[in-house]
Amino acid sequence: MTLALAVDIGLTLLILAMAAWTIAVRDTFASVIGFVTYGLLLTLVWVRLAAPDVALTEAAMGGGLTGALLIGAAARLRSTESASRTERPSVLTRTLAAVLSAAVTAALAICVLNLPDPAPTLAPAAAAQLGSTGVGNPVTAVLLAYRAMDTLLEAIVVLLALVGVWSLAHDRAWGGYPQLRSHADPDGILAYFARVMAPVGIIVGIYIFWIGADFPGGKFQGATILAAMWLLVIGAGLAHLPPVSQTWLRVLLVAGPLVFIVIGFAGLVTAEAVFAYPNGYAKPLILAIEIALMPTLVLALALLVAGAPQRMPPQ
């Protein structure tokens, strides 16, 4: 369909322009807006490429949570912005970087255009085995059955990133609250917004999580939405982040991966291999793992955006 082709070409040009703008612009805030817009366009691209799972992740992560994170960083950097302007790399460096990037891009483009057609793919194999996993969404089957250990380790990557962020805390603030005190007016418009938005958002987040077993969606996307809603409530001054030394917080943070490991090893007894599921019990076990991973991911994502502990715990 030529109309669809026109849409695709337009999208491609737009996304390239946005990417160039994000790199070229010198003002941090402007660049961040460019990045958020880029994420949004990328969502559309994934939809056009018939990859709704990826589109959903991009919508949640690329635009939303990463956008908020970068905006927060840009706000903090604002006072040093004029100083950092003088630290621009030299023309030579920038030219070299541009030439190198262009060369890599060109090489990649040539290779991608010359890839075998039809492309060799594991998609039919993944779909063929779907029955024995009990889930309807092949992406979920890949994440929690065929490549379960990768997913477990990715969850640990998120936790490690959080540990890394926390490691930047001041020694005196260790164990404290990960955010400066929120001064937002509890009766202000933001509080009103959060009060209305958060409950509906939480329902949407749980819905996106729940349908993940059979349709595009899943724990990462759902967790991102829930984390965003939590941060919204905190930003509006209606709640506080917990201090990082809280035991319940630590327990929830590790519960997901630990439950995953335990269920994985249970497979040794019940189904002959680690990370295998016994016949007929695959779907409930996959759901159990996902449910256990949810609080871990929600907390870790929200705390990653919130940053290192900054305020002393109450004595």
Partner: peptide, 20 residues
């Protein structure tokens, strides 16, 4: 599934705007 994508986008676009 696109409607779910739009739903997620609406929710998080609002969040990003507020953060901004």
């Amino acid at each position: 599934a696109v409607i779910d994508v739009a739903l997620t986008l609406a929710l998080l676009a609002a969040f990003a705007s507020v953060a901004f």
